[in-house]
Design a protein around this nucleic acid. Structure first.
Length: 364
DNA sequence: GCAATTTGACCGGT
DNA sequence: ACCGGTCAAATTGC
């Protein structure tokens, strides 16, 4: 890891990954192919990419400044590091011992950082495809913004112990760090189908209930923001829908997620809920099973340019779902005007199934 | 009325 | 003892 891998090796690994991806594609088309085989291929693909990352001495998330200069200029979503930098998460991910989950600190843990780039705005992980329920919020010592605590909605029903924490960065309010703990044991179907909440979490202090405006003028500001957001939401709900149903389709194994249009909001579980906005202020999601590092960005056309997962991913689908804001959940407060970050949904451009973030005025 | 969120209190690890 | 994480009653919204 301390040395740069030589180009040939890197290319070799990449080619291998490509080949594996193709194999996976073939298997996905074969009805006779077992899920086990597919999972194995996915594991190999992930492993291959991790090797490459090591070879290129990947150091995790790019600096905020860099990300904002991303050629694609879109919202940049980062699945960070923890796995590499955190021995804790690294160890946990590899730890298959059920007992390891007895202690909360030993639960598999990984972090994703979501950044909303000015001009683009969307943070990616609006929704990871899972349903989350907020069970707490706490001011963290030394942190400007409160941390939100979420647990899987299916905890009681299916005993899914997955939880996540959302912490807004002090240094860069446009960055939200989402820490996931535990893998989802609930079925994806339930999650996706029932919608996933988008927990919003730490909204801005002033926006958040924790810091609800104490001054009248602030309230006025909030109101206008809420109004604005409501409008945005409305427009968004009318046209935005996240497509997660076909994520596992053969055609798009590791394909970037897109945000299809839909006019049928009521029946769509993948519509961005109002909480979405909140997510912007407090993003939501990351992959339930994903561990590791990941880094992917959304191009103006809504395409994920890259991402990495960890070898222990339950499946690629889950990872993808994580990145997808398919929310339906009810999460967060309707009034919690998440105002922290203004998200000009109305400035989005929807092009067929993809929408763009061309407007350079997010967070302005 | 039900379900989700809020928020102060409590628990447990360091 | 401090602080992060969770619980659970109260509150709020649908």
């Amino acid at each position: 890891m301390d040395h740069m891998g030589d180009p040939k090796s890197i290319i070799h690994e990449l080619l291998q990954g490509l080949e594996l991806a193709r194999q996976l594609q073939v298997h996905l088309h074969m009805p006779s192919s077992s899920q086990e085989t597919r999972d194995l291929l996915i594991q190999k693909i992930i492993s291959t990419f991790e090797k490459v990352l090591e070879m290129v001495k990947w150091k995790g998330p790019v600096p905020a400044g860099e990300s904002s200069q991303h050629p694609l200029g879109a919202a940049l979503i980062r699945m960070s590091d923890s796995p590499l930098s955190s021995e804790d998460s690294d160890r946990d991910l590899k730890d298959q011992d059920p007992n390891a989950f007895k202690k909360r600190n030993t639960l598999p843990r990984w972090t994703k950082q979501i950044r909303v780039t000015p001009g683009m705005g969307v943070e990616g992980p609006l929704d990871d495809g899972y349903s989350w329920r907020k069970y707490g919020q706490k001011d963290i010592l030394g942190a400007l913004y409160p941390r939100g605590y979420y647990r899987c909605t299916h905890r009681n029903v299916q005993g899914c112990m997955a939880t996540k924490q959302v912490q807004r960065s002090d240094e860069d309010p446009t960055i939200f760090e989402i820490t996931y703990r535990g893998k989802h044991t609930c079925t994806v179907a339930n999650n996706v189908g029932s919608s996933s909440p988008i927990p919003l979490e730490n909204q801005e202090p002033s926006l958040n209930n924790t810091n609800i405006p104490q001054h009248q003028h602030q309230q006025n500001i909030l109101q206008s923001h809420e109004q604005q957001q409501n409008e945005l939401l409305l427009s968004l709900r009318k046209g935005l829908r996240v497509q997660t149903e076909n994520l596992d389709s053969p055609e798009q194994p590791l394909v970037p997620f897109r945000f299809p249009l839909s006019t049928n909001i009521k029946n769509e579980s993948h519509v961005f809920p109002s909480p979405v906005l909140e997510n912007f202020t407090s993003p939501s999601y990351v992959s339930p099973a994903a561990s590791g590092i990941g880094h992917f960005s959304v191009s103006p056309s809504g395409v994920v340019n890259s991402f990495e997962g960890n070898p222990n991913l339950a499946n690629s689908e889950s990872q993808i779902n994580d990145m997808i804001p398919a929310t339906t959940t009810t999460s967060a407060a309707p009034n919690s005007s998440t105002v922290g970050l203004e998200f000009p949904f109305d400035q989005f451009e929807f092009d067929g199934q993809n929408f763009t973030f061309d407007n350079p005025r997010f967070f302005s």
